[in-house]
Write a protein that binds this DNA or RNA. Structure first.
Lengths: 157, 157
DNA sequence: CGGAATGCTGGAGGAAGTCAACTATTGAGA
DNA sequence: TCTCAATAGTTGACTTCCTCCAGCATTCCG
């Protein structure tokens, strides 16, 4: 039936539109107020402030090549936001730890995202709750699909 | 109160996560099945199949510089998906019209987005409805904010 | 008619992405 | 133990995308 297909396609378009708008909005704010490129901001947001994260894990979270992450970390380190440390358990891996300054920067980013998100602020608290639940469900489905695909390609080899 | 700020920040992160996942998913599918770069696909999706669209309007819809759009249109035209036509009303503007092939390509893209969207397909039809309504509300708020900002910067001058 | 404004294009420069090759380290088996 | 495959991170060449500035054609307004 064409109607369900069209509904899903339209919904996909809507998700992309809203998120693209927000991404652009934050990008401007982060660049103007914090001097951060959007990729740098995204990298920092993916890190765990309380535990060291291997470079490779960050690359996989960002969905890009590890060789791509190296210059990001270079700049983050240069800005004093993260530190590279050699993992004592496996001296091949370098883990990324967020510095005190990095944590302060994360706090400021959360301030911006939490106080200046026009599309989300237009929703009532209960609407935000339902949106959060729906997105959580969609997200777990995405992760499950990803794990399934991964298992399949491994099985093929 | 910190709780609302954190909720909004988390929600923003969720929106970005899900949409980034979907964008990557479609990117792979479009590239593998249709031979389209994601920016080309996005450009084509923004065009109106039934009415010519000026280059400048496409640039504004994509949120990037008009000079950036030129090479995209070059490739779309080379692929036979759109045609550049001079607007008879104002010979400065070149309008983009989607060819028959372009329409077929759009149909195939909608097929992919409508039948292969794991995160959205995990939702029940009624959940999709509510998601659509919430996103529509957020989207209109974003557009209103944009118009307001635009009016303000104009008033400053 | 003359000058300001607008729309598209071209070029320089920067940021970001992929891919292949390289070094260092680890782990498993002969 | 020694060797060899596998893994983590980095580097390099190369491509794509984006922005800013300059240029050309066209339109609009005084």
């Amino acid at each position: 039936m064409a109607s369900e297909r069209d509904q899903l396609a339209g919904l996909a378009q809507q998700v992309m539109d809203v998120s693209l708008w927000m991404a652009r909005h934050y990008h401007q704010r982060f660049a103007a107020d914090l001097g951060l490129t959007d990729t740098l901001a995204r990298s920092l947001l993916q890190l765990d402030p309380d535990h060291p994260v291997p470079t490779r894990a960050l690359a996989s979270m960002l969905g890009c090549d590890p060789s791509n992450v190296t210059p990001f970390v270079d700049r983050l380190e240069q800005a004093g936001l993260v530190e590279r440390q050699v993992d004592p358990h496996d001296r091949r891996v370098k883990t990324l730890v967020v510095t005190t300054e990095g944590r302060a920067m994360l706090e400021r980013m959360n301030d911006i995202r939490g106080t200046d998100s026009p599309p989300l602020q237009a929703l009532t608290p209960s609407e935000r709750d339902t949106l959060e639940k729906l997105l959580a469900k969609a997200w777990t489905a995405a992760k499950a699909y990803e794990a399934d695909q991964c298992a399949r390609t491994r099985a093929k080899m």
